[in-house]
Design a protein around this nucleic acid. Structure first.
Length: 439
RNA sequence: GUGGCCGUAGCUCAGUUGGUUAGAGCGCCAGGUUGUGGCCCUGGAGGUCGGGGGUUCAAGUCCCCUCGGUCACCCCA
């Protein structure tokens, strides 16, 4: 590629979202907003970049995301900043800074940045919807949060999704379990895959998560963290499971579910799509992080949340042929083959009357303008020719039905267009509904 | 970061053992129709064949490098 062409292209791993696809994003966000606002969550906007330590401390220096995937940079004042690689840490930082009354419930929609090699369902800038709740350790809150995520997926029509559920324990029981696991793996070191034969000392939990057959086989009889939970963690997890069952959210226990960030404690979960054939089939996940607030300098405060990847959710929708792209049809399209003044003024009038209206420019032929009107999806063409101009009239031509066109006084144009829409004579297209109707 | 595959028009693609002015469909523009969209017909615009170098009388085609895309590993949404 020559230089000029390369510049006129979104950076590797990023992508543009244009109409009509962008309308689907709008609709998804509006639907999510309605669901979580109804549950008492408030929208939180936080900066797209933070002091890099916000992420380093929370997600863990050892995590891949912090270690090799963060977009870090120094600003002109010498501060080390990072584009957010995920949504939780910034919200927790905001909590520590502002100390709102607890339990504090927040939701967000945000881009997230990670420097990885792009592939299907994986981007350097992707987008997440999510919620966080700070200040309550009540297991029924775990149920609420997981339920909100499940409901979002169900509401767009996804059916081929499995909720994986696990508990990471807490500071009392997890270290004991990790030591047990390390001992178990040490005896089988030679049968692990090359990578984990080396790394199991540092983080034996990762070995459980390995997809390679060698590690799979070697860990079949490994001790389960769920069997090693301390009494409080076990009680918490039991309450979460009965709660999910009570609200009708199906989950499968997955003792291999080890999420990538260090801050997780107790409940962790992940929604996996069966419709995505790529390796990137996790469309959302989250869990408790009862120590994260402290790590960022706040008082001991429990927390829980989830994030759902918008791109992956929509890929899954495409794979399941649900939640189709919506159109934003026009009500009227103004065709003016006189001097153009009529189009200029009439279009404005129609819009002020609350109609969705567009028009042709550049003084093109009537044939050409009607072609544009047709392609725009408009219900009615509002035509101004020499005759109409002379008599102060407009001709309304239905474009979506067999109805006859008619000529009315120009002053009645907006009302007449509206009558055609309401009467259903002109407007009967099957695939159109608008985000604003949903919100 | 590692590996496989692929780069020809806005899009999807064809292009023979290397051989003349690189094609098709769709889309776009215009005309057929000086006041009427869709269907049909005709015409047109649009290409540094990703870029650079090499082999050759001759390269879209073969070789090398490079850039980009894509898929997978890793990790994650």
């Amino acid at each position: 590629m020559s230089d000029d062409v390369t510049v006129a292209r979104a950076p590797s791993g990023t992508h543009d979202v244009l109409a009509p696809e962008s309308a689907r994003w709008e609709l998804l966000v509006a639907r999510f907003a309605r669901q979580v606002e109804r549950a008492g969550y408030g929208l939180a906007h936080t900066p797209i970049f933070e002091d890099a330590r916000v992420f380093r401390r929370g997600m863990g220096e050892g995590s891949d995301v912090v270690g090799k995937e963060m977009y870090e940079f120094e600003d002109r004042g010498g501060r080390l900043l990072a584009l957010r690689p995920e949504g939780t840490a910034p919200v927790v930082r905001a909590f520590v800074q502002h100390r709102p009354p607890t339990p504090w419930k927040a939701w967000y929609v945000t881009p997230a940045f990670r420097y990885e090699r792009p592939q299907a369902g994986r981007y350097r800038q992707h987008h997440q919807l999510g919620v966080e709740v700070l200040g309550s350790a009540d297991p029924d809150l775990d149920v609420e949060v997981i339920g909100l995520a499940a409901r979002l997926l169900a509401s767009v029509g996804l059916g081929d999704v499995v909720l994986h559920l696990h508990s990471m324990g807490d500071d009392a029981c997890r270290p004991v379990y990790v030591e047990d696991l390390r001992r178990y793996l040490a005896d089988r070191r030679s049968s692990l895959c090359g990578e984990h034969a080396e790394r199991f000392e540092a983080n034996p939990l990762r070995t459980l998560d390995c997809k390679k057959e060698a590690c799979r086989a070697a860990t079949v009889d490994a001790p389960h963290l769920l069997d090693a939970l301390c009494e409080p963690c076990a009680a918490h997890f039991a309450r979460v499971r009965t709660g999910l069952a009570a609200v009708g959210v199906a989950a499968v226990l997955d003792h291999r579910l080890v999420r990538g960030f260090d801050y997780y404690t107790r409940t962790t979960f992940e929604f996996v799509s069966g419709a995505l054939d790529g390796a990137q089939n996790g469309i959302g996940g989250g869990g408790r992080y009862d120590g994260l607030v402290e790590m960022l300098g706040g008082p001991p405060t429990p927390g829980i949340g989830f994030g759902v990847g918008i791109e992956r959710l929509l890929l899954a929708c495409d794979a399941e042929a649900v939640f189709p792209t919506v159109a934003h049809p026009l009500d009227a399209y103004v065709v003016d083959v006189t001097g153009g003044e009529a189009a200029r003024d009439l279009t404005e009038e129609l819009r002020r009357a609350g109609l969705a209206a567009d028009r042709a420019f550049d003084g093109r032929s009537m044939r050409s303008q009607l072609k544009s009107a047709d392609r725009s999806g408009a219900s009615v063409a509002v035509i101004v020719g020499a005759d109409e101009l002379e008599h102060g009239q407009v001709t309304l031509r239905p474009l979506r039905s067999g109805g006859d066109q008619r000529t009315v006084a120009r002053a009645e144009a907006a009302a007449a267009v509206r009558a055609l829409l309401v009467g259903g004579e002109a407007d009967r297209r099957p695939t159109t509904h608008r985000p604003k109707d949903e919100a």
